[in-house]
Amino acid sequence: LDYETVISHTVVVHATDGGTLKLTGTATVVINVLPANDNAPVFTDPNGSAIINETTPVGTNIYNATATDSDVGTGGKVSYYIISGNGPSNTTFYINPNQGVTYVWSVLDYDTPPQIYNLTLKAEDSGGLFDTMWLSITLTDENDEYPVFTQNTYNAAINEDVTVGTPVAQIVANDADSGVNGQVTYSIVSGDGQTSFEINPATGNF
């Protein structure tokens, strides 16, 4: 029987006696099928993906998960959950349990692993039947960190008769960005009106 296909069956029953002239009685039996939670939810897409920038604001909708359940009534009501892969604190992303909409739920940082989150989403009906899917979320890098000098002021002392090319100081700045966004280039922007000094743009040697 399948409530979702036919909810009621009408059966006609004959009773025939054993006489020479057989007589027959007729009865009608109406059988109503009651719904049972016999169908599990099924995700529309078992593997999902999203690519987002590390500066994506908290609260941004990044993916819509959809699951259907063939049962009717409460047996077909689906709730959504993130059951694994949701970052160290388990709060990096949030899924609306009623709608399956996935949001950014904490500040992201490409420079702090992981750069790829592999979430397992679960769709579960009221009877405990469920389906799961994978959602891969890839972060892209953004130049969101400023170079920071290791000192606010560098002091150096040299004799006035030193030869050209004599090292004066080592200037160091660090940038927390990854890749080319974290590569620092040095330059003198003021205070050297007579062009007496030069800094190596790559190393910071002064």
Rank of each mutant, 00 (worst) to 15 (best):
Q194H: 12
I199E: 01
S178C: 08
T195N: 14
F149A: 04
I199F: 01
G204C: 07
L108M: 07
V78S: 02
I171E: 04
N205F: 02
G165A: 10
S49A: 14
T120G: 05
H14P: 06
A40V: 00
A176K: 10
D17R: 07
G59K: 07
H9S: 11
Y94D: 15
V30G: 13
D125P: 02
N37K: 08
T132E: 09
Y110K: 05
P46Y: 01
I51E: 12
I7C: 15
V11H: 10
P57L: 03
I31V: 15
D131W: 02
P201K: 01
L135T: 03
T10N: 13
I116R: 11
G100I: 02
I137G: 04
Q183N: 13
T16G: 07
T120M: 05
T26K: 07
T185L: 11
H14T: 14
T68F: 00
T24C: 07
V168A: 05
I171P: 03
G19N: 13
T28V: 07
V33M: 09
Y103N: 07
L129D: 04
A176D: 12
N118M: 11
T195R: 13
L139T: 06
D111L: 00
G75A: 07
D131H: 00
Q194W: 11
T44Y: 04
D17Q: 06
N96R: 10
G59F: 08
I31S: 05
Y186T: 03
I95Y: 01
A156D: 08
G193N: 14
P201M: 02
E124W: 01
G76N: 01
P113Q: 10
N32I: 07
S136F: 05
T55N: 11
E160C: 04
T60L: 07
P41S: 03
P88W: 06
N96L: 10
I95D: 06
A50T: 06
S49R: 06
P46W: 02
H14Q: 12
S190P: 03
L23G: 13
T195E: 14
T26A: 08
T140P: 06
N205T: 10
T5W: 10
S89N: 15
E160L: 02
T24S: 09
E142F: 14
G85R: 02
T28H: 04
F130V: 00
S196L: 14
Y103C: 09
E54F: 03
N90R: 09
I171M: 02
Y186M: 00
A27M: 08
A15H: 08
N47V: 14
S89I: 10
T10A: 13
Y103W: 08
V12W: 11
Y81S: 13
S190T: 01
H9F: 12
P46T: 03
D17V: 03
Y154S: 03
A157D: 15
